[in-house]
């Protein structure tokens, strides 16, 4: 039943028009590959920049929101400023998580021009929008990631006299980054797909390029099939690469004892089980 349906569809595709489906796709690729390549480049640039800047924004907000605000850790003025900053950050997060990125793109692109006379080119506007949008999501992800770090870590850092910033930088945020890596990878993959909405301001990302090619060639179906396939390859590859990265960040399972002279040969065997290290 299923197989015959698939076979039928393939037959239809293959018999479509004068050329077969795959031949049409091949022709599109051959003719428009520079356009597609540019689309892939812009999409990946948007997604990667958005994610990296978003992580930066998220970590910075996380570090700011955890600054102690109790009565004894600073004067009244400091506390008022911190409260104000926290309120502004909360508004930023709510607004950018609570509105569609497509609308944000329009507001930023046309709004900056009308209000301040700043006319960005569409790529820069796209980079800006995807970065601050991702930043809002990352801020919430980072908050969860910081909460997942054992409070004992912060206490130990305080106990050796480290400042809030030193504690964040050397102890809490590195562990936070490890905690949020899966969710961040997810954001990256979402960005690859969702930057397609930036075509509303004319950013030449992959979907926009597809739309243009379809408009010129009239080969709507094969073009969008091709675009879909490219998106799939991008997201799939990204997912795999991130998983590798995750494993690498965890570091080796084993360690080597520093004084080889006192250690039996077997303990130092590469990849072998060490005294206290867990074996793979």
């Amino acid at each position: 039943m299923n197989t015959s349906a698939v076979a039928g569809a393939v037959a239809v595709l293959a018999a479509d028009g004068d050329d077969g489906f795959f031949i049409q796709v091949w022709d599109i690729l051959r003719e428009y590959w520079p356009w597609l390549l540019k689309g892939v480049g812009v999409t990946m640039l948007l997604a990667l920049t958005g994610t990296i800047v978003g992580i930066g924004i998220g970590l910075a907000i996380g570090a700011i929101r955890t600054i102690p605000r109790d009565a004894h850790s600073g004067g009244l003025f400091r506390r008022i400023v911190l409260t104000l900053v926290n309120a502004l950050l909360a508004i930023y997060i709510e607004v950018f998580r609570g509105t569609p990125m497509m609308v944000q793109a329009m507001v930023v692109y046309f709004g900056l021009d009308m209000a301040f006379g700043i006319s960005l080119n569409v790529l820069h506007a796209g980079l800006l929008v995807v970065s601050i949008n991702t930043g809002a999501y990352m801020a919430e992800i980072v908050r969860g990631g910081i909460q997942a770090v054992d409070p004992g870590q912060t206490e130990a850092a305080k106990a050796v006299g480290m400042s809030h910033w030193a504690t964040m930088r050397s102890v809490v945020l590195p562990q936070t980054i490890r905690n949020i890596l899966p969710a961040t990878g997810n954001e990256f993959v979402i960005n690859i797909k969702d930057t397609s909405v930036l075509m509303v301001i004319g950013t030449a990302e992959l979907y926009f390029q597809g739309k243009t090619i379809a408009g010129i060639s009239y080969e709507t179906f094969p073009v969008y099939m091709l675009i879909a396939a490219i998106y799939l390859v991008l997201t799939f590859t990204t997912t795999r690469v991130l998983r590798l990265l995750e494993r690498k960040l965890d570091g080796p399972e084993n360690f080597t004892l520093a004084t080889s002279s006192t250690t039996p040969e077997s303990i130092l065997r590469p990849g072998g089980e060490t005294l206290a290290g867990r074996s793979r």
Binding site: E155, A159, S163, P174
Partner: peptide, 25 residues
């Protein structure tokens, strides 16, 4: 201070655990 639950910095190795406070604080 030495804690009941040790509270070693999980992201750092043994040497770094003993170095970080000296350098950063």
């Amino acid at each position: 201070m030495v804690f009941q639950q040790f509270n070693l910095f999980n992201n750092l190795n043994v040497l770094q655990n003993c170095v970080i406070g000296q350098v950063r604080a």
